[in-house]
């Protein structure tokens, strides 16, 4: 799945924290109060929002003026998706990290359990 850049993440944080939909202007105001040092142009916010829309993170309500934006998933769902990717196994990723205990077949798990309980004498 797609990941978020730093600015995208900040925008998503505001959307996740909002009750409902926000316009780009409202969003920018909340962003400014969130990190007062950075002043963002509305056009920048709009660019980020359309990128987030393309990535499937944000829905845009075009029927109202100005357009309203809201997050597609909740923050918890997004975290769960990321966690799923981190913990899931793909051959490519298996090459990138070294697990303490790698893939375990059910039979082997059974053997390990037997070893643990000491019911099997070897």
């Amino acid at each position: 799945m797609a990941t978020l850049g730093e600015l995208e993440r900040t925008v998503m944080d505001v959307l996740w924290g909002a009750d409902g939909s926000l316009s780009a202007n409202e969003l920018r105001d909340r962003l400014d109060s969130a990190n007062g040092a950075k002043e963002l142009a509305v056009t920048t916010v709009l660019t980020v929002l359309s990128r987030l829309e393309n990535k499937g993170f944000v829905e845009r309500d075009r029927s109202s003026r100005p357009h309203l934006y809201r997050s597609v998933t909740t923050r918890a769902e997004h975290t769960a998706d990321l966690m799923h990717e981190v913990l899931g196994s793909a051959p490519d990723r298996e090459a990138a990290l070294a697990r303490f205990v790698g893939q375990v077949s059910p039979e082997e798990a059974e053997t390990l359990r037997a070893l643990l309980s000491g019911t099997r004498n070897s």
Binding site: F100, V101, V104, S105, E108, A109, L112
Partner: peptide
């Protein structure tokens, strides 16, 4: 530890 993680993970 190995056996616990191995059987627990499965």
């Amino acid at each position: 530890a190995i056996a616990l993680v191995g059987s627990g993970a499965a």
